[in-house]
Every structure is written in structure tokens, then in C-alpha cells.
């Protein structure tokens, strides 16, 4: 186990959940994310280096080989088409990508020219194209809920977890485009050269999902 495995995690709640999950499965010996705001921290026992980066960049870090493994939301994976392997889903980070609208646009499906604000242009255009609805896409990078309030758009397509943010901005969730959760991604070359170690980690993750399946069945 000479090689220090580099794992890219998205900053925020998903990194905390990832570390906790890896600790519980005996993949990592660290219980928590570094508290001193360091973006790189090491698990000396298990020879893992964690990189805390922006969620959108996790795919690029893994694709380019700067990290061997990454944790990323299914939504971002689908939106960006990274050239990476996707071996497993993780039992956290559950949310959904949905269409939300203000009350006055209840009938958005019948509108002739619909303005849609989103940070997921690829998934959004595919979804509306398949529905046969013409849209004008408004690409935004954050605070999507503001778009209908400031009349930039009629509806939005955004991630919804509890629905509290939508409610706070008087928006109503209608169609769910996709269900998302956290996924493990791998750099293909890292998988080839550290196959045994990575497969060992993947087997631990598979066992968790199998035991979850057994409980659900």
C-alpha cells in the first residue's frame, strides 16, 4: 500500500457525509473533515489524501488524474459527461432535479415561449425537448430561485432537497426531472494501476448497498 490514494470531495455537507461513510466502512481512519479549513488533509493510517474542492470540479480532477477517486452528485455527472468510471452509488446526497414555478405560472406547460433559468442547461434542454416544449434557456450559476422573482425567467430547474428554499421564495415544485444521489467516480488509469486496493474499497461499498437492498426487500 505504498501509493497514497487521492480522493476528491465536494466542499460542504457531502464531504462530511463522505468522510463519515468511509470511516464507518473502515475505508478511512478519519472521523471528520479537517476543522482548520485546509483544502488538503491526510489520513496517514490508511494512506489517503483528501482534496476538498468545488463540487463541479470533482469530475475534472478525477478525469485529469489529479485525484484517483471522487464523490460527485449524479446531477453533475449527467450534466458534464466526464470521462471517468462510475462504479457505485452512495447512500447519501439524495435530492431531485425539479421544475419549480411561481403560482402565476401554474400552466407553464402550455406557455408558448417559456423562459427557464438553470445551472443544468444540458439536462434541462434534453428534458424540455423530449416534452416538445420550446424554451429560452437562462444560464445562471447560483441563487436560481431569484430568477422568477426578478422576472428573468418564468420557471426554474434546480436541485430540491427538503423544498424549504423553494417555499421561502413562493415557488412550487412540479415535475421531477431526475432523482440524484452521491456517486463514486474513478480515474480509469488509477483503477488499472491500483485495481486491488480500489476493488477492495468498492467491495465494501457494494456490501453496504447489498445490505440496504436486503433491508428494503
Amino acid at each position: 500500500m505504498d501509493h497514497t490514494l487521492k480522493i476528491a470531495l465536494p466542499k460542504g455537507r457531502m464531504s462530511e457525509e463522505s468522510i463519515e461513510f468511509f470511516y464507518n466502512q473502515n475505508i478511512s481512519s478519519l472521523k471528520n473533515v479537517s476543522e482548520n479549513r485546509q483544502l488538503i488533509f491526510n489520513d496517514e493510517v490508511k494512506k489517503i489524501q483528501y482534496l476538498l474542492i468545488r463540487s463541479k470540479d470533482v469530475g475534472t480532477y478525477v478525469e485529469q488524474g489529479a485525484a484517483d477517486i471522487g464523490v460527485i452528485g449524479y446531477d453533475l455527472l449527467l450534466e458534464n459527461s466526464f470521462d471517468v468510471f462510475v462504479p457505485a452509488s452512495l447512500p447519501f446526497g439524495n435530492c431531485r432535479l425539479s421544475v419549480a414555478h411561481p403560482e402565476k405560472f401554474n400552466n407553464w406547460k402550455k406557455m408558448k415561449k417559456l423562459r427557464v433559468a438553470t445551472k443544468y442547461p444540458k439536462i434541462t434542454s434534453k428534458y424540455f425537448f423530449e416534452k416538445g416544449i420550446n424554451i429560452q434557456m437562462i444560464n445562471l450559476y447560483g441563487s436560481i430561485e431569484l430568477a422568477p422573482l426578478t422576472d428573468i425567467s418564468d420557471v426554474i430547474v434546480d436541485l430540491v432537497s427538503t423544498g424549504q428554499t423553494l417555499k421561502a421564495h413562493n415557488l412550487y415544485e412540479s415535475d421531477v426531472i431526475l432523482e440524484s444521489n452521491a456517486q463514486i467516480i474513478l480515474n480509469s488509469s488509477s483503477y488499472v494501476f491500483h485495481k486491488k486496493r480500489i476493488t477492495n474499497i468498492l467491495n465494501k461499498i457494494l456490501n453496504v448497498s447489498l445490505s440496504t437492498n436486503a433491508k428494503n426487500n
Binding site: L206, L210, N213
Partner: peptide, 15 residues
């Protein structure tokens, strides 16, 4: 196929 068998079959084929 059940969730468990689907996950296993898929994983054994790919990894």
C-alpha cells in the same frame, strides 16, 4: 431482477 441481484450482476461484470 431484485435490487440485490441487479447490483451484484452489474458489479461482477464491470469490476
Amino acid at each position: 431482477l431484485s435490487d440485490k441481484t441487479s447490483n451484484k450482476t452489474s458489479f461482477f461484470l464491470l469490476y
